[in-house]
């Protein structure tokens, strides 16, 4: 991106979180695995950025780097304009409190031998944000009310195994809220829930976004969930460690431009038999995702892409460049045709 990294944004105008040229290469026995290569994204306060893509595309690696859980091998993560890996202790502390992570599996993310009260107040006690047992209990009860687990008193002394999956995930969200976060990173937080309770959890999260102004980095493989939760926000579609299309959710979902995004959207099964029977999927040239250790040359999607042409596609990796005012796209063919069409009409 042609942005000037030498002049940092002032904290007043800087986005909540900015990823610039983020790279994460893992060293493994079988060679280097470039899990994320060159991701530029940002999240604003009260806004949603949704990362979608198939397993292994680098969504979770990106999220973990954004949460400061791993040290990227290249590029930077900035919180309010400050590189998180150059922060002093106090600033780092502030960042860690402000950015909280909600994991995928509520059965694994809550300590089974701790009560709800104990899980919710561990952070508060550690950071001395509450004085005494009574105050801690009140704070925990308030958190449970925020995630609509009421009456809160009836949940505080329960253990995770006494709760349903949906209730556990709400406790996990409440725990993330304990530190008054500015940014929540939700990694497939609704995928393990049954459909009948998924919508209500998404609505609760939406309430936090709208009422508390919490920003979200929301990771999902489910395009319908992305559409519902990030309708007023943005979607970034990832493929093999790179963002291939990024723009406002309505545009990306209703008018996808990248052949990979198009294939994903065409593959969705809707609960409607007539629609399902008339469905036209986009035939890919290969059903298999290439391995990260042996990435194809040029555009990494070209061996599967229905639009691939010999020439640029198999030699030059496309850059994620602006397609129109608000959308960025990494595809030689679509970008070229877009320019040609504009020249034709203009």
């Amino acid at each position: 991106m042609p942005e000037t990294p030498t002049i940092p944004d002032s904290p007043a105008t800087a986005p909540l979180l900015r990823l610039s040229g983020l790279e994460q290469v893992f060293d493994t026995k079988r060679g280097k695995v470039p899990a994320v290569s060159g991701v530029d994204l940002k999240v604003e306060a009260g806004k949603v950025l949704c990362l979608v893509g198939e397993s292994g595309c680098g969504k979770t690696t990106t999220a973990r780097a954004a949460a400061g859980l791993t040290r990227p091998t290249g590029g930077s993560v900035e919180y309010l304009g400050h590189d998180i890996h150059r922060m002093g202790a106090a600033e780092w502390q502030e960042y860690r409190e402000a950015v909280q992570y909600i994991h995928q599996d509520p059965y694994a993310s809550l300590n089974p031998v701790r009560t709800v009260l104990s899980s919710l107040t561990a952070g508060l006690r550690k950071h001395k944000k509450v004085k005494g047992r009574h105050e801690a209990r009140q704070a925990a009860a308030r958190l449970l009310e925020q995630v609509e687990l009421t009456p809160a008193e009836s949940y505080l002394d329960k253990y995770p195994h006494q709760l349903s999956g949906g209730q556990r995930q709400r406790v996990a969200v409440a725990r993330a809220l304990a530190m008054n976060p500015k940014l929540l990173i939700a990694d497939e937080s609704t995928s393990m829930l049954d459909v009948s309770i998924r919508v209500s959890l998404l609505n609760t999260l939406g309430g936090l976004r709208d009422d508390l102004g919490v920003g979200f980095m929301f990771i999902t493989h489910d395009l319908a969930v992305a559409k519902y939760f990030a309708w007023d926000g943005e979607i970034a579609v990832m493929y093999l460690g790179k963002v291939v299309e990024h723009g406002p959710t309505p545009q990306v979902i209703n008018d996808p431009q990248h052949p990979y995004t198009k294939a994903l959207i065409a593959a969705v099964c809707e609960p409607d038999p007539r629609l399902a029977r008339s469905k036209k999927t986009i035939p890919l040239r290969s059903a298999e995702i290439p391995s990260l250790t042996a990435l194809p040359s040029g555009c990494t999607f070209h061996p599967r892409c229905p639009l691939a042409e010999s020439g640029d596609c198999d030699t030059t990796p496309p850059t994620l460049a602006p397609l129109d005012e608000r959308r960025r796209l990494a595809c030689h063919v679509v970008a070229r045709d877009h320019v040609a069409a504009q020249a034709g009409t203009g």
Binding site: V195, V199, K227
Partner: peptide
């Protein structure tokens, strides 16, 4: 309760309770 990808955002309702 099934979220659609096609079309506008419909009114979605979850089933109360478990």
């Amino acid at each position: 309760a099934v979220l659609p990808v096609v079309g506008d955002l419909p009114q979605l309702a979850s089933i109360p309770g478990s």
